[in-house]
């Protein structure tokens, strides 16, 4: 094999890769939207008045957090058909990513809620605010800026974990690169271009999140040094 970089080949495969990038972005976006909601459910599950439910949810979260996403994908994808439940690769991927990153996001939310000073709660109690009103007007607006960095990191995290979806046949960027590489038996350009595309998307995303964090902090009158 010659190690020469071939530009003509790169240009030839680039449109294909860019189209597949759209699928990657879509997978990351939908997966993230599900994870954001699932994370709230997990958090609620850990804060019910019933101790037993709290402990069970806590253990489930712990289990999902400490096992690899790859095997979870295989598990959902292959075990469903055993019980007559056939899911498409896309549905499997979205469910698994939603559950996996939902556990992480529930931890982010928990940290953010605990980051709101206790005195705020006490003041609301003193002012006779209802619990819902306290959450809506006092706690959430203060917890949100604390949650932004964590939530942003996991958005980028999901984006960087989307190549795993190619293992169950979701046609995203990495899948396209492997297919193109196999067709021409040249992996140098496809895989390198995948890396470049990832860099080109994840670095601006990280910068954008940092900007958003600063913006929200400023809007709330808390200027971070």
């Amino acid at each position: 094999m010659n190690a020469e970089w071939r530009w003509d080949f790169t240009y030839q495969i680039l449109p294909k890769l860019l189209w597949a990038t759209l699928n990657t972005i879509m997978a990351a976006g939908i997966g993230y939207a599900i994870a954001v909601i699932v994370g709230m459910l997990f958090l609620l599950g850990q804060r019910t008045p019933y101790k037993v439910i709290n402990i069970i949810v806590r253990e489930v979260v712990e289990f999902i957090r400490s096992t690899p996403l790859l095997i979870q994908l295989f598990f959902v994808y292959f075990v469903g058909p055993q019980f007559g439940l056939i899911l498409s690769a896309w549905v499997t991927a979205m469910i698994t990513i939603g559950l996996h990153f939902g556990t992480y996001l529930s931890e982010v939310y928990r940290g953010a809620l605990e980051g709101v000073p206790k005195s705020q709660w006490e003041a609301c109690r003193a002012l006779n605010f209802s619990t819902i009103y306290t959450y809506r007007r006092i706690v959430f607006p203060q917890a949100f800026p604390i949650a932004i960095p964590g939530m942003g990191n996991y958005l980028v995290g999901i984006f960087k974990d989307t190549p795993l979806l190619s293992t169950i046949g979701v046609a995203e960027l990495f899948h396209a690169a492997t297919a193109v590489g196999g067709e021409h038996y040249r992996y140098l350009e496809p895989y390198t271009m995948v890396g470049v595309i990832f860099l080109a998307l994840s670095i601006p995303a990280a910068i954008g999140i940092r900007k958003l964090e600063r913006f929200v902090n400023k809007a709330q009158g808390k200027v971070k040094n």
């Binding site: 190549p163 795993l164 895989y191 390198t192 990832f198 860099l199 670095i203």
Partner: peptide, 21 residues
């Protein structure tokens, strides 16, 4: 920035399939 910006799986495949080039 480079290693945090690209996915681990891409790096893994790069090391295994591209370095032989």
């Amino acid at each position: 920035e480079f290693f945090r910006g690209t996915s681990l799986m891409v790096q893994l495949f790069w090391f295994y399939y591209v370095l032989p080039f």
